[in-house]
């Protein structure tokens, strides 16, 4: 199996790696680059725990090949805060206790960020359908939805 050389941008930084043709972007992030914030909950695109943004599109990194990232811009949870300043969504997730075990949290935060960038004033229903690709088994989603609503308000005011 011939390795594929890839040049890409991750969280604003130029990154180069060699990966196998069938290796997923999630495997590359976690096992080659040490970016373990994206989680594998299923490996089949059903749980959203591995969500990242590629060229402005929310995707499951388990359903993207590492080779496909050539020349793209990848955003992961590790790049969400600005320095020591948490993103409003991160802050609101903490304040609302929108996480219990926290393993789905990186995926939810990335998906919620994408949602609010495309729709800054979502209704509860839009939030619920917008985040339906992210499974959480701990919270019953109540506090997650409230945290996203609160963050949307804060971000509009900013």
């Amino acid at each position: 199996m011939a390795g594929v050389a890839v040049s890409t941008t991750i969280n604003g930084d130029a990154v180069e790696y060699l990966c196998q043709p069938d290796e997923t972007l999630l495997e590359v992030l976690r096992d080659r680059l040490g970016l373990t914030g994206a989680k594998e909950g299923c490996g089949t695109g059903d749980c959203g725990a591995c969500s990242v943004i590629v060229d402005g599109r929310l995707v499951c990194s388990c359903l993207v090949l590492g080779a496909e990232a050539e020349g793209r811009k990848v955003e992961t949870i590790e790049g969400m805060a600005h320095g020591d300043q948490l993103h409003p969504l991160q802050q609101k997730f903490l304040e609302h206790a929108a996480l219990q075990c926290g393993v789905c949290t990186p995926g939810f935060l990335i998906a919620a960020k994408d949602l609010l960038e495309k729709n800054p004033s979502p209704t509860e229903e839009e939030i619920r359908f917008g985040l339906a690709g992210n499974l959480c088994r701990c919270t019953g989603y109540d506090k997650i939805v409230r945290a996203v609503q609160d963050a949307a308000n804060v971000m509009k005011g900013a």
């Binding site: 976690r30 970016l35 914030g37 994206a38 969400m80 949290t105």
Partner: peptide, 11 residues
């Protein structure tokens, strides 16, 4: 946990 630094079983 909100920055992706928390280490779970596979991390």
């Amino acid at each position: 946990k909100v920055t992706g630094r928390a280490r779970y079983g596979a991390d």
